[in-house]
Design a protein around this nucleic acid. Sequence first.
DNA 1: ACCTGAACACCGTTCAAGT
DNA 2: ACCTGAACACCGTTCAAGT
Lengths: 218, 218
Amino acid sequence: MTQQARSGRGRGRPSSPILSRERVSQAAIRIVTDQGYRHLTMASLARELGVAASALYNHVSSKRDVLVLIQDRINEQIDCSSFGTEPWDQALRDWARSYRQCFMEHTALIPVMAVLPVADSPQTLRMYERVTRALHDAGIVGADAVDIIVGIEALVFGAAYDATAPTDIFDPGSLEDLAPTFIRFAAQRSPDPRAAADRAFELALDALISGLRQKFTD
Amino acid sequence: MTQQARSGRGRGRPSSPILSRERVSQAAIRIVTDQGYRHLTMASLARELGVAASALYNHVSSKRDVLVLIQDRINEQIDCSSFGTEPWDQALRDWARSYRQCFMEHTALIPVMAVLPVADSPQTLRMYERVTRALHDAGIVGADAVDIIVGIEALVFGAAYDATAPTDIFDPGSLEDLAPTFIRFAAQRSPDPRAAADRAFELALDALISGLRQKFTD
DNA sequence: ACCTGAACACCGTTCAAGT
DNA sequence: ACCTGAACACCGTTCAAGT
């Protein structure tokens, strides 16, 4: 387990450091997966790794840096395989679904991810390249291709938040009279909040993609 | 300024409390507007109001409760006037633009707003009713009407984050070789990050709305 | 009922001191 | 170079005590 750490480079006494950015990000993902983002603190991260909290700062510059590390790993889980086999519009749909699925469990990363320079995220960059290539092959080039990615990401991030909303989010309480039509229509959605969120996402995604298809297809 | 506070109900000595939910939310918005969300703490809020921090808990149950208070006030600023005059698709477009504009300065509210039961937000509920009515008049009813609102909100929230991203967000640094096509296309966007974000939002919004129009218009 | 002051259980981060 | 331990400057929240 400490193989990489033990392999000191150069001669003399090997330095054999306990930590590394790799080990820090692995431990962080373990905590986040098992216990959620609320439990990810510099103290808990240090405990998981068996070191003092201050030791972490030899490898990461801040807690935000830890989140950046996580984010690139999480993005590896997004399924981009449809870009090899499906038409571009169907591939975009599949990609967006997987993307949202992924960030539904990582909404805490959205504020970080959305404003993060891609320079810090090699895996994310690879994903963007894959999508861009598919758009390029469909004749969509230049700023349009990037804007399509940015636009879909926006919908995905927003929908990921929405999917974490509680069951009673549209229960008006005592304010029923303020919005009778809205409340009546909201009551016709699925009682399962997850299913309701899924349906809203699919409706918007479908409209967005078919709007794009119409715009970019001769 | 303390008129409402001075009007003690009942006889005997009027209680004349210093605080109220109203005054708390006003002070919070003042801090957020002048100094940003980073400076909104229970301590700073108490200082602004000239009381001890613990006094706040007689009127709000938590800091999150303060954000909920703010959120409903912020939503009042969203322009819904097009729903009276424009066709439903154009009105949705105008609404979405104003909505995004509003939350670009309040991205900190998005995680709160997205999962917040509407029961806590009378103004938000009024806004939803206005949009729903316009959709209803266009023949879009039931879950579809609510899902359209939810879908547009998702795009708006995600795009609001995107608009706060720094200039160099697509600067690949040393990772240029990982995504040559993407980097090349990204370089063709506007050098002004705000203008680039605006364009991506407009592209997605346009596609989404025209997709909806196509789906719901006979 | 409403406010104060002190206290609690945390945070992320820094830094001199060790090896 | 890398880790420890103590310390710092905060957080949000609680609660007995006052009026």
